[in-house]
């Protein structure tokens, strides 16, 4: 089953076209890594999936439900705000800058959205949240404020916070780029764990080793287009496109 279908996505910032007709399908349980130079549009693509960016043209379908599509005149139409919100919170997102809520403790960060958005009772969500914290190895930090955590710990809380909404798809927007090198390992480990549990994941990343090891499919983007996609072996061992070859060479 397709978790996600994109057809001919175009996105412009003023006159700059950052996505030039992207089409992509992601199957349930698939882990897709999107790599490419900065400014290639890979983060923008990810942000279009959950309305952090509004597309100018194209169709977005999440788990068979249409989020945005073109009307008969070719203009892009989104479904109602209410409907769009319901579709989008099936996707969890982890940001480069963590974006934890600084005025809430770790546990409150995790339970806030399930209580507020889904109306789940506090006593029901607390055990789940504690389970998630154990899973990312931060149970003992549950009453700390985010400012007391390291970057790696913050990002693991952010992952737990996204998982608390029980998403079907997880989006990662350069989750380790803001971390000191020695802290990326613990975050990647949590993500690897998720992949083993067959979470559908789309990961925009500069971590080539992670993409090679965990992803089932690697997409190379450049200049608003998908240049090449394939299995990690294909992309990393025998890339066909010169741009892919040049990029991978520069990453070494």
């Amino acid at each position: 089953m397709n978790m996600l279908r994109l057809k001919n996505i175009h996105k412009r910032f003023n006159h700059l076209e950052v996505l030039k007709g992207i089409s992509l399908e992601v199957a349930q349980g698939e882990v897709v890594a999107i790599i490419g130079p900065s400014g290639s549009g890979k983060s923008t693509l990810l942000r279009c999936l959950n309305r952090l960016e509004i597309i100018d043209q194209g169709t977005i379908e999440i788990e068979g439900e249409i989020l945005a599509t073109e009307d008969t005149e070719g203009k892009c139409q989104y479904v109602s705000e209410q409907k769009a919100r319901e579709i989008c919170f099936k996707m969890g997102m982890v940001f480069q800058q963590f974006n934890l809520f600084p005025h809430m403790t770790v546990i409150d960060n995790i339970i806030e959205a399930p209580m507020l958005v889904k109306g789940i009772k506090k006593e029901l969500i607390i055990p789940e949240a504690e389970e998630l914290l154990k899973k990312v190895g931060l149970f003992e930090k549950k009453n700390s404020y985010p400012s007391r955590l390291s970057g790696g710990q913050k990002q693991r809380v952010a992952i737990a916070r996204a998982l608390a909404m029980k998403p079907d798809i997880m989006l990662f927007d350069e989750p380790t780029s803001a971390l000191d090198p020695e802290l990326t390992g613990e975050v990647l480990k949590a993500m690897r764990q998720l992949a083993l549990e067959h979470m559908t994941m789309i990961v925009v990343t500069h971590e080539m080793a992670f993409a090679r090891e965990v992803a089932q499919r690697v997409i190379f983007m450049d200049n608003g287009d998908i240049v090449e996609e394939g299995t990690p072996e294909q992309i990393f061992n025998s890339p066909e496109q010169p741009r892919t070859q040049a990029f991978l060479k520069s990453m070494l």
């Binding site: 919100r85 989008c88 919170f89 800058q97 974006n99 934890l100 809520f101 958005v117």
Partner: peptide, 27 residues
């Protein structure tokens, strides 16, 4: 307040009013 706070709230499914009341205004 950083844009990231609004974005995190939005992807967690919060409405504008919920975001303002629970996330933005307390900060």
């Amino acid at each position: 307040i950083e844009r990231g706070q609004y974005e995190a709230s939005k992807v967690l499914g919060m409405t504008y009013v919920q975001t303002m009341r629970r996330i933005i205004l307390p900060q």
